[in-house]
Amino acid sequence: MEGSKLGDLELLVLLAALRLGPEEAYPVSIVGEIAGRFGRSVQRASVYVVLKRLEQKGLVTTHLGDALPERGGKPRRLVRVEAPGVEAARDVRAGLERMWSGLGALEVDS
């Protein structure tokens, strides 16, 4: 039931932001993280939409970082995953694991 709270891409963005941490998570790096780790190329435009939605749900907060020369002196919009976000990701994982359990043939080695 809790699994439906997050969409597919929302989950990916949330996990990517958690992996990168609050100092490094921003739209460009999130797209890179999803592509590098999950192997899916995501439009940055979709990431903006998803981040906005996550923000409205109170799962993440964003703020402007320092201006950087490699960005033409423009700041990054850094993403911090808040406690409800971590909670939501955990719920999805628990839900999915309940769904996987017992399907031995589909187990993967990690």
């Binding site: 921003y26 490699e70 960005r71 423009k74 990054r76 919009r77």
Partner: peptide
Amino acid sequence: ERREDLAGDFEEAHA
């Protein structure tokens, strides 16, 4: 309010 950081994202991706 979003132009600054979006422009930065574009700059980075463009480079």
